[in-house]
Design a protein around this nucleic acid. Sequence first.
DNA 1: CGTGGCATTGAAAACCGTCAAAATCCGTGG
DNA 2: CCACGGATTTTGACGGTTTTCAATGCCACG
Lengths: 245, 245
Amino acid sequence: MDQKVTIPLTSNNMRVACSECNLRELCLAVGLDDEDLYKLDDMVTKRKLKRGQQLYRAGDSFDAIYAIRTGFFKTDILTEEGLEQVTGFQMAGEILGMDGISTDRHVCNATALEDSEVCLMPYDQLEELSRHIKSLQQQFHKFMSREIVRDQSLMILLGSMRAEERIAAFLLNLSQRMRVRGYSASEFHLRMTREEIGSYLGLKLETVSRAFSKFHDEGLIGVQQKYIRILNADGLKALLNHTPS
Amino acid sequence: MDQKVTIPLTSNNMRVACSECNLRELCLAVGLDDEDLYKLDDMVTKRKLKRGQQLYRAGDSFDAIYAIRTGFFKTDILTEEGLEQVTGFQMAGEILGMDGISTDRHVCNATALEDSEVCLMPYDQLEELSRHIKSLQQQFHKFMSREIVRDQSLMILLGSMRAEERIAAFLLNLSQRMRVRGYSASEFHLRMTREEIGSYLGLKLETVSRAFSKFHDEGLIGVQQKYIRILNADGLKALLNHTPS
DNA sequence: CGTGGCATTGAAAACCGTCAAAATCCGTGG
DNA sequence: CCACGGATTTTGACGGTTTTCAATGCCACG
């Protein structure tokens, strides 16, 4: 179904070779020369998580950021009223944990939605190294800035789109991120529940389900539980541009 | 009305002395010793804006970030449908422009909502300097992380609160930020229109107006156009905890 | 003193949430 | 391997909240 990119592993120890990682063009390692890549290698260790396991929790002390090697994560926050609010879904090549820098404590939970592997980068070492490697510094700043921009896109989605627009945008976004990573952009398994999608998009799970059914009836997508096919991407895009008011 | 903090200015030239700025405990200069502050001084120039003037626009090339010295700003994005979406309101001590790092172009517009002054920091120089001054590097990272966390708080607001909760949260947030800066936390002038508030909170201007009127009738706040008094802060806070569902 | 932007208020409609029930899926243990 | 039970998803009917549309009022500014 998903045509996975094979990950070259010289051995199954905890060391990771950024220099040989096929994600290095997506990750912090972008633009580093070989010598600098080796320094990055020395800093990074690998960690595996089973589905459902948490990488960190809100309130945990912050000492590292994580690059996702394989797998799929969600980040969420428990609001004061005890409701879970999903703040993001992350996949291979994306960075987790940057929210913790501001207060030295993580403010959200990060949970693996499938069996996953991350690269752990001790933050003090990353700071140290990025003072010496200009392109690492620049790349790190770009990643933080990108997260700011991404969060703002979501603010726009939450602030100005109606339910079906949000869900169309969500599917197109997922599809595009799959494509970038070499997976099929037109069919994939959702790793999250309808409730988690709804929480992320500011909707109730029933609304998500209804929109999926409607898109299905209109021939825009195929839906079989968590298995989704994008049948008419242009049709989905049209839902976004079509100003309702 | 607003009891302004007086800004000591040795002259009205374009140089700025971070070392003498009364905002240095809010700004990037936190934790720097005198020697490092002088280096920061050398990098920074001042810029004044009239109400309504734009500091930068979406699409502008990114070469600097800005620390607000005095005044009040909004950032916004024009969506594809041509609607303005406000992404934030910023006041003294806060940093503008970090969204531009990721693509070397600004993704939003920054507009002064009153006559304002900013400190311009050329980004390449800031990168250079933060490779040499550890506490500047750390402070800069904390500011970026704080923006990520702030954006996530807004996502929660937009994703899980109803209209009146959002507006109560908005007023309390403004009030608290005024207090931190030495202004009155219980009475202030809004610098933005109802429409801009609504855009920021994902509501229509009529809904904002109605909530203000309702809070007014309940004795929670005083409203005379843009002049707001917080009469019962606890009452406003109570609106947040009270889970509606 | 008039004009135009901004704010307030009302009534009706649209959209999404709530509640409820049934169907389907998945993992576990027999 | 199959059966079971809990979690997840789908679907329907209804109600509430917010938007939409419209009219009026207020204020700042020229």
